[in-house]
Nucleic acid binder design. Structure first.
Lengths: 145, 145
DNA sequence: AAAGATTGAAGGTTCAATCTTA
DNA sequence: TAAGATTGAACCTTCAATCTTT
């Protein structure tokens, strides 16, 4: 086979799809960072600790809930532990227990409303009448095997 | 003001929007990497060198065409120069001239058709009747001030 | 052996500081 | 001075290799 190159129109769609995400994510991340000093990853971890556990989760559960590989989470937790946002301790079953620290709780409290406002400002309020539905449909189509 | 938290429906949209991009990009990048050994960034740089210059561009033009900051491009070019994909030389006007190397040309030739096929498989063919148009509209809305 | 977790290396991105040269 | 470019630090992600404990 000799696959054809992408047409200008195909390239335009691909380009828009790429830039769309980059644009929104970078702005939301910046809003959160400016208001709380937390990165997007840090907010994700702290939110789950508070929402899914009561400030405490097994590392393995945390990994699954984020959809992250263990290695990625391990590196992330190491950085966050160094920043004093959380603590790790030995669980009774051989696993590791991750607990949110006081400064983590404080920053999370500051970041949550900013996150909500930013997602509304950068994405939700800009969606046309049926575009939210299109996004959900698109997500399903693109994620399907 | 006491901003409200995101509703479950808002969260669902935000989650879908995030995962959608991650899913598609990681698969396209993997397809390219497996076929050519090039990363997405490397392919972007090499493509522009071949398409916009004739294998040679001023570093500054390259930065503008990619929409990258000079620092980001500098780091990227350093890695690519170390891999033997391109060469840098002094331009006559004080700038730097970036030239694609033989191995860069070869890998680019291998990666191009794979990239086109992957974008079609991972994104384009999955779009419903009007979804391409929705993406273009969404891109415009989200990029607007 | 299998599960849970860590580590190091390499690539990527951003920021601020610095260097170089027209 | 101003433009073009580099550098180092910090953060992020992935992969393969390695522990550690059950």
């Amino acid at each position: 086979v000799t696959p054809k190159a992408l047409s200008p129109h195909e390239l335009e769609i691909w380009h828009a799809f790429k830039k769309m995400g980059e644009h929104v994510f970078s702005r939301v991340a910046r809003d959160i960072e400016e208001a709380s000093g937390l990165s997007g990853s840090e907010l994700g971890v702290l939110s789950r600790l508070e929402d899914l556990g009561k400030g405490q989760l097994r590392q393995q559960e945390l990994a699954v809930s984020m959809g992250w590989h263990k290695s990625r989470l391990s590196h992330q937790l190491t950085r966050m532990e160094n920043r004093g946002l959380l603590k790790r301790s030995a669980g009774k079953d051989g696993g590791v227990l991750v607990s949110i620290a006081e400064s983590g709780t404080d920053l999370l409290g500051a970041a949550r409303p900013v996150h909500a406002a930013s997602v509304r400002e950068r994405l939700l309020r800009r969606l046309g009448p049926n575009q939210a539905a299109v996004i959900l449909d698109l997500f399903a189509r693109l994620s399907a095997g």
